[in-house]
Design a binder for these strands. Structure first.
Lengths: 131, 131
DNA sequence: TCTTGACCCTATAGAGGCTATAGGGTGCAT
DNA sequence: ATGCACCCTATAGCCTCTATAGGGTCAAGA
């Protein structure tokens, strides 16, 4: 399949796919006589993996090491597991922060409804150094 | 406090602080006779807020607008109200996204039966197109 | 057969948000 | 007075894409 089809299937911009190839994160595809990239189902799976990992908030470097871990059949679980675990901690912290911010924002709305502008404490809500 | 101390306290690079000042998102500090920036606790809270917000995925423009809400002079209620409402929608969407992501990550963890080496399905799971 | 239009190619530049480097001043301890 | 860690400005570069310019390829239709 050509790059456009791969792009559609993985919901990725064509330019981004070429960028991934330049970065060496997606293996180069075979070329047709007309020098078109010709992708295989393996590329599709790998790119899907990359995109999904990026969506889940892993950095390029992390995706790289996830891919490396995937190649090594011996101990993939421990490494991948550890990365996911660490990531979950971050996500939980973010959800907590956003919930705080949300509360302050809706407080602001209520203050407004009661005709008196309340003090906005959004900075106070998130302005404290983390415990 | 000087810029280095502020940097340490907020886990921010000195260069980044100066960048925020140039961008007008963090107010300029007073200067000492030697032209050193001299920061107050107010700067500390504001910068902490900025960093947290950025970490939560708000763009610079969004952080700017959140900070505008915090200017507690009597602004026209309607404007503040509309802005706060908009941000709440945004925050709710972020919370929903992260909650989903959290579920997926913990699903990933479950897919890893670490007792059985070589049977890790995390990698497979990431390579599947999204249902 | 010739043209049109959707695709493909490379190379390069730009955006957003930092981060690093060069070249130099400040201030305190030894 | 000499180090050394810190501060200053100005400018260039990095990361992850995304867009643009300038140009080939190919199937379908006039």
């Amino acid at each position: 399949m050509f790059i456009g089809e791969l792009a559609k299937k993985t919901n990725t911009k064509v330019e981004t796919i070429r960028y991934y190839e330049r970065e060496g994160i997606l293996p180069a595809a075979d070329r047709t006589d007309a020098n078109y990239r010709d992708y295989s189902p393996v590329h599709l799976a790998k790119l899907t993996f990359i995109r999904r990992s990026r969506d889940l908030g892993f950095s390029m470097a992390q995706v790289r090491s996830l891919l490396d871990l995937a190649v090594d059949d011996d101990q993939p679980c421990a490494g991948v597991d550890a990365m996911a675990r660490e990531h979950i901690i971050n996500v939980d912290r973010k959800i907590a922060d956003l919930t705080l911010l949300r509360a302050e924002l809706s407080h602001l709305l209520n203050a407004c409804d009661s005709e008196r502008i309340g003090k906005c404490r959004i900075v106070e809500a998130l302005g404290e150094p983390r415990r």
